[in-house]
Simulated assay, not measured.
Amino acid sequence: MKLLHRLGAAFLLSTVALAPAVAQVSISAAVADKGRPQADKDRDADRKPAEMLKFAGVKAGMTVVDTLPGAGYFTRLFSDVVGPKGKVIAYIPDEMLVKSQTALERANAAAAGRSNVEVVHDPLMAPPPQGVADVVWTSQNYHDLHNMAGVDVVAFNRLVLQMLKPGGVYVVLDHAAAAGSGLANTNDLHRIDPAAVKAEVVAAGFVFDGESKVLANPADKHDLKVFDPSLRGKTDQFVYRFRKPK
């Protein structure tokens, strides 16, 4: 089923229809929740979740699209903060599922028992519904868009622009490559030059709206793969916020 229809149906659901299985809590309470998976809590020191959600401006009742959600680390936090009147869409491009269903299985596991989370997969360039999301988020995966054959990343960013409400934000968190390297290391090191990201997103019609440096690591020389045991979890990361003009 097309993303357009899946998401459209999700946003037509009344808030009454969403069973209140997820209680609305503050960002700090969501992070402090003792019921979070231990694997998530073990990564908090490196991922700075409270700072990230505050930077993105996630609040109760919002609709958040978690693009390429991985194992659902942020999906679960978004779910708790937006509460039963909000919605979280965990979106996986079909291009990631050609060789393996692992990404879909992980997203479904994260959504289990959470009535305000819907897992959606579709071709990356499928037209989205217009003006429905408050926040579109992608964490440590934007560089992978460049590793998908035939994908026009600027065109994809334009689809994100269409999906956001006026004034909505698009947050990109990723592993930094060396300044001036552009797109050269998206596949071998799984890194991307922050300047290249900014240029692509602004070219799609967004306004650059700020950055967070809480995940920066000046000691990272940008020459190792992000999965290298000596560096994993400690890479130099950038966090950019872009806003759709009102």
Rank of each mutant, 00 (worst) to 15 (best):
A45N: 10
V226D: 03
E105Q: 15
V25H: 09
E51W: 08
K234C: 05
A56D: 02
L159F: 11
A30D: 12
P166F: 02
D152C: 01
K198G: 03
V160G: 03
A219C: 12
G35S: 02
F238M: 11
D144Q: 07
V171H: 05
K59R: 15
S79R: 07
V136K: 01
A21E: 04
F206C: 01
L4R: 05
S26D: 11
V65F: 12
D80C: 04
A216F: 11
D223T: 12
R241W: 01
D223N: 04
V98N: 13
G35F: 09
F55L: 11
V120T: 01
Q38A: 12
Q140E: 12
Q24R: 15
D122Q: 08
L189M: 04
T235G: 09
V64I: 09
S115P: 03
A216R: 14
K59Y: 07
F74A: 01
H222V: 09
G182W: 03
K99W: 15
G72E: 06
L189H: 06
G168I: 02
A109D: 04
P245E: 02
G72I: 03
V25F: 08
V98D: 13
I92K: 05
N108A: 00
K244R: 11
N116P: 13
A103V: 04
S79L: 06
G150W: 14
V135E: 06
Y170N: 07
G182H: 00
T186F: 07
A111T: 00
D220M: 08
A111N: 02
L104S: 05
L3C: 14
A219P: 15
K198F: 00
